[in-house]
């Protein structure tokens, strides 16, 4: 083979690590977010829904650029984190954030509709039995829609795995540091290393 195995292993391990972190974030933040958004009488519901859906509609490169401005060393949010010694740009954290933002709408939307479509009377039976909305969600609704949760998580992770635009902007595509597998393919093609690109593609196919 004309390429070194580290050129394969590094992006692969990096991608899997990123996916692992994104998955944890999606479960810890995505599910509660879907629960909050499914509340019928929530104020400014349309605004928060639009905010979550934004990365799905807006071009990833543009989102990446906006995030770069926001999270950069002198950016609006970035400067605060910078003061705490936390940087996102061109770091592993940036990759995770990029994957998470790209994947979030695909996790939250299907879950939100699964929660909203859950039979009202079953929820009310739990309320009249003295259980709170949150308790009902955790012990009744979530176990009943677990298939939807898993499906949404898989679709969202697939999106995170294929994410290029935001990752490129936030991660910087630094070879050996922030080149995820999708970016490694892009780099390989760019450098004319078609064998490497094909090999990475076949790995992605196996993962998918």
């Amino acid at each position: 083979m004309v390429f070194e195995m580290t050129q394969v292993w590094h992006p692969l391990v990096l991608s899997l690590k990123t996916l692992g972190c994104v998955a944890i974030l999606l479960v810890c933040l995505g599910i509660p977010l879907a629960f909050v958004l499914s509340k019928e009488d929530m104020k400014y519901k349309w605004f928060f829904e639009a905010l979550v859906m934004f990365p799905l509609i807006f071009p990833p490169i543009a989102i990446g650029f906006l995030l770069l401005l926001l999270l950069g060393k002198y950016g609006w949010i970035g400067s605060c984190f910078n003061a705490l010694g936390i940087g996102f740009i061109f770091e592993f954290k940036g990759l995770v954030l990029a994957g998470f933002i790209a994947a979030l709408p695909l996790m939250v939307k299907p879950l939100q509709s699964a929660i909203e479509l859950f039979p009202k009377s079953i929820k009310e039976a739990s309320y009249t039995g003295g259980k709170s909305r949150f308790y009902t969600f955790v012990f009744i609704i979530l176990p009943c829609i677990k298939k939807s949760v898993i499906a949404a998580l898989l679709i969202a992770l697939a999106r995170a795995l294929g994410e290029v635009g935001i990752t490129l902007m936030l991660g910087g595509n630094i070879v050996g540091k922030t080149d995820t597998i999708s970016l490694a393919i892009y780099n390989a093609v760019f450098d004319g290393e078609y064998d490497l690109a094909l090999f990475l593609c076949s790995i992605l196919m196996v993962i998918s």
């Binding site: 009377s121 079953i122 039976a125 309320y127 009249t128 009744i140 009943c144």
Partner: peptide, 20 residues
């Protein structure tokens, strides 16, 4: 008073049992 605090029993037409 929220339904949780009323101490009632409610029987629904469509049973509304917890399927899980």
């Amino acid at each position: 008073l929220p339904p949780q605090k009323r101490g009632i029993g409610f029987v629904f037409q469509d049973y509304a049992l917890f399927p899980n």
